[in-house]
Design a protein around this nucleic acid. Structure first.
Length: 518
RNA sequence: GGCCCCGUGGUCUAGCGGUUAGGACACCACCCUUUCACGGUGGUAACAUGGGUUCGAGUCCCGUCGGGGUCACCA
């Protein structure tokens, strides 16, 4: 929109009026909060990116602003197939919806940088014409050589600016050698560039340490630090909220802003998320992508909750907090400065809390794919089956922390095909007289008409009294007999869920098994 | 290596000159209990370090050390 707006302006409005107009409007009207998440499609959305996206989202929602998704795909070499789709689906899954972006559109599009080339080229042309940028004919090999030389001499590997003042003739002859030039920005050699960062405060960079960096590659593609500034301006981004690794890029972008005559947005560099070994997140650290966490049975609300707590904290001692509540409370100034190491343990704890507290029907829906994966479910789920699943899930949710664990905890309710837990066999089946005990238990159960938890428990308690044994003496072996496990829901709840027939069958089977053990 | 950022228990954090340094995860113990969880109670455990400033410093300043980031025709 800025592009057409400025085009229209420059066509129709005399310069003096234009000046007044921009004064009145203010390029940086803070009343219009616009933030963006700008991933490059080189892979999955990892939790660091997700957290950056989340903070942008929270800030936008808190301020009733707009959240924009922009795809930074100017490097076609590193572009990965399906990556955009992956990122989009991960964000949607987490509930991070955007107001403008690919697939939803918006007034400031296109939202793929690869489709915005015209805008960049125009601005590069302008800088060239205004003598704020110049062509550089040095080849990559030459630059690499000089860089290595500098490093060897212990000097900073900076571009020496040798092409800054080439004459037309010199340029002509270099072109005739078949050299494709890059475009470099003329960076002031003196003074400082100051970044005002909401999170970090005032950060000062010495211009002398910067070099004339490349804004357009020899293949004609503009570079990141350039397009980023151009787009943030063109899309009227008010606040740039991104990871701290970009802090040292910021002076470069500020220089682009200055050269182009733009007003700068407000910057906020959020701390990085580090792997448990304190290094930058990568695949070798195991699950780091949102998709992997999803596949491990984590709920989106747990991940969002966890990520929000990493580097930010709500009022009071609240740990469980919804996205909406986060948005209500979110404040950039309260974002921590130090990098955080992510710890799956707390995520898992949160996830367990959510598994226990979300709506049961939703929990069933969420766990069905995980049960399917274990081959526990038929193609079609009948209403009766669904009802049964609901009761099973309700019984086991208390003691599971991920959907994978949940599906596992459901398994013996859905299949007769299970082994007896090895340690459990040693502990409960090898005891003297267990088979007989189970026989007795089985026969009192067999006489029951009603087979709900209360009835089976009453029957068992009567037997326990009669035999003068401890409840645990028969309860543990029975549990192992009907579930194959030593842990799980209350025994009588299990019986009720399984029903009389299965309970008795499994007990009979266990009795046979025990007899063979002897 | 230069530049930049950061430094409260193992981990995430609260703290914004005067606190017995609070909470959460994890860990340990006990209680509840048919198991496992949940829940409850209690516990172990931190201001990196050395100088300043101040009546008084986790909080402010400087040095040191440690960690991270960045120095590309990647983003």
């Amino acid at each position: 929109m800025t592009s057409w707006r400025s085009q229209v302006r420059s066509l129709l409005i005399p310069p003096i009026l234009l000046f007044l107009l921009s004064e009145i409007r203010g390029e940086n009207n803070l009343a219009d909060i616009r933030v963006r998440f700008a991933p490059s499609p080189t892979g999955y959305l990892h939790i660091g990116g997700a957290r950056t996206a989340l903070f942008n989202w929270l800030f936008a929602r808190h301020n009733d602003g707009r959240f924009i998704l922009r795809i930074e795909d100017t490097d076609r070499e590193r572009l990965k197939e399906d990556s955009v789709e992956q990122i989009i689906s991960s964000m949607r899954w987490l509930g991070l919806d955007w107001d403008e972006g690919p697939d939803v559109g918006g007034d400031y599009g296109p939202y793929f940088q690869s489709q915005r080339l015209g805008i960049y080229l125009k601005e590069i042309r302008r800088l060239l014409d205004e003598d704020k940028a110049y062509y550089c004919y040095c080849t990559q090999q030459e630059l690499e050589q000089r860089r290595q030389q500098a490093v060897k001499e212990g000097k900073a590997p900076r571009y020496d600016g040798r092409c800054r003042n080439l004459t037309v003739e010199e340029q002509q002859s270099l072109r005739e050698q078949g050299r494709n030039p890059v475009v470099r920005l003329k960076v002031p050699t003196k003074g400082v560039t100051v970044v005002e960062d909401v999170i970090r405060g005032t950060v000062t960079f010495d211009n002398a340490l910067l070099d004339d960096f490349i804004i357009q590659k020899s293949d004609g593609m503009p570079t990141y630090n350039f397009v980023c500034a151009v787009d943030d301006h063109a899309m009227e981004i008010s606040h740039v909220i991104r990871a701290e690794e970009h802090l040292s890029n910021t002076p470069k972008q500020l220089l682009v802003y200055r050269a182009l005559g733009y007003n700068a947005p407000v910057f906020a560099h959020v701390p990085m998320i580090l792997a448990p070994d304190r290094s930058k997140l990568s695949k070798r650290h195991g699950a780091t992508s949102v998709e992997e966490f999803r596949d491990q049975g984590y709920l989106p609300e747990a991940i969002v909750n966890y990520l929000a707590l990493l580097g930010w904290s709500p009022e009071g001692d609240q740990e469980m907090i919804s996205m909406e509540e986060c948005a209500k409370q979110f404040d950039l100034a309260k974002v921590s400065k130090n990098a955080a190491i992510y710890d799956t343990k707390k995520l898992t704890w949160l996830n367990g809390n959510y598994i226990r507290s979300i709506d049961i029907d939703r929990l069933v829906d969420l766990s069905i794919p995980f049960m399917r994966q274990k081959g526990l479910l038929p193609e079609q789920i009948s209403p009766d089956m669904r009802d049964y699943l609901k009761r099973v899930v309700a019984a086991v949710r208390e003691r599971t922390r991920t959907l994978v664990e949940l599906a596992d905890a459901c398994s013996y309710f859905l299949t007769d095909d299970f082994e007896f837990d090895e340690a459990g066999v040693k502990k409960h089946f090898l005891k003297e007289g267990v088979a007989e005990l189970l026989e007795k238990g089985r026969s009192v159960l067999q006489r029951l008409d009603k087979f709900d938890a209360a009835s089976t428990e009453a029957a068992y308690r009567a037997l326990i009294d009669e035999l003068g044994i401890k409840g645990a003496d028969i309860i543990h072996p029975t549990r192992l007999a009907i579930s194959g496990r030593t842990v799980g829901p209350g025994l009588f709840d299990m019986m009720e869920l399984l029903g009389k027939e299965k309970t008795l069958d499994r007990m009979a089977r266990a009795i046979e098994y025990i007899k063979k053990l002897a």
